[in-house]
Design a protein around this nucleic acid. Structure first.
Lengths: 227, 227
DNA sequence: GTCTATAATAAGATAGAC
DNA sequence: GTCTATCTTATTATAGAC
């Protein structure tokens, strides 16, 4: 079972985005100038049966509401209309289910990441990826809070190598060369503003398109990217 | 036991700050021009025995790391070096412990709230309170994530009347008169930026004073308050 | 205020039939 | 792929002695 007893310093997707240092990847820099893991397996490529997908869908929904610790296998089975044993036939442990749903979410950024790395201009690449990160934060906003703040998932993002590597790569593209305090505070405010605002019920009645545009405009200015 | 099965639309301290509308309190406006509950009991005034305080201290520490659902009575007892039965002698249920620790944290803003309401100029009152809210977010940063995002606490903040009333009053002072979309997006970005950045490990080595000053400067501008 | 002991229930997980 | 049945452990919670 997943335990958060020995908590990691890294605590979430967006905070990892801000915490992982570009220079830590300098030994795996490609000739494009962007960091990349040499053999990293793309997230979300493993094949899932229909039954497995049903489990992950139900789990995703419940975990978004109750958190990982607050979601039991019984709750997942009930939501699916089957027994616990049927769920265990698809995934050997609860851990695997948690890894599965997290992978499902992170995988949504694999294509945007690849597209950004195809850009020749680094500033343009950051802008492209930033747009997609915001887009995901907005469209998947119900999940962002859990992905960012659930103690079990925080730990998973810091310990599960495929997740660590993916986030490091993502960050490598998003992060510029600046390394001073102002840049760090700006990055922190930026990630906090995105993650915090998309889960804010005050903005529930604002349509996705408007919110996306407002966030992009503000964060673009914060990161000094071209419009 | 606390269940988050029927989740509330309100989801956290800062999002409640942004979500509760000033006009909903118009019927309880005092002559000072600030909203207030007529008979609201101040949080944190109930007396606690030394043993109760030890329980709450241990619970606070564990819940900050593992969340409410991830923290058992056994863990609390172990941290205190006593048995579960000793813990149950101080609090009849786990719920009461969760309410207790949440109250302990919110109570830290009771005095700042009273001080702000003593100001004659509303803009000045907002500035004073904002300063204290940021100060709490910075100094209690380890707790902010749980207070903001734990599913059980989110539910508690929306359902427990003393918490609802306190937050409504707090928000009444912080919120200006503006009611347009821009103001709402700004408020959401503001609360997200504060809450998100103080828990960002990228800023772990920045001392409290510097972080406090940077946050105050930025959020003051966002809210169009006087320096 | 703390203990041992115990209850009732739910958790994660497995075996084997259909 | 799903079921019933079961196991083990952990959970919230209580009773009663010291």
């Amino acid at each position: 079972m997943i335990s958060s007893a020995t908590a990691e310093p890294f605590r979430s997707l967006f905070t990892l985005l801000a915490a992982l240092r570009y220079r830590k990847l300098s030994d795996v820099l490609g000739d494009s100038g962007y960091p990349h893991a040499v053999v990293r397996q793309r997230l979300g490529t493993r094949s899932r049966t229909a039954a497995q997908r049903r489990v992950l869908d139900a789990a995703l929904d419940l975990i978004a509401d109750h958190g990982v610790s607050g979601t039991s296998l019984q709750m997942i089975a009930d939501a699916m209309g089957v027994t616990k044993a049927a769920v265990y036939h698809q995934f050997k442990t609860k851990d695997e289910i948690v890894v599965g749903v997290t992978e499902l979410e992170l995988a949504k950024l694999e294509e945007p990441l690849a597209a950004a790395r195809a850009e020749s201009d680094p500033a343009r690449a950051r802008k492209v990826l930033l747009t997609d990160v915001i887009d995901m934060a907005v469209t998947r906003r119900r999940w962002i809070r859990t992905l960012q703040n659930d103690p079990i998932i925080i730990r998973l993002l810091g310990t599960h190598p495929p997740f660590r590597e993916f986030i490091a790569e993502l960050y490598g593209v998003l992060q510029g060369e600046e390394d001073d305090t102002i840049a760090r505070v700006t990055a922190a405010l930026f990630s906090g503003a995105i993650a915090g605002s998309v889960v804010n019920p005050l903005l529930d009645d604002i349509d996705d398109e408007t919110l996306r545009a407002a966030l992009l405009q503000m964060t673009t200015r914060m990161l000094n990217l071209p419009d």
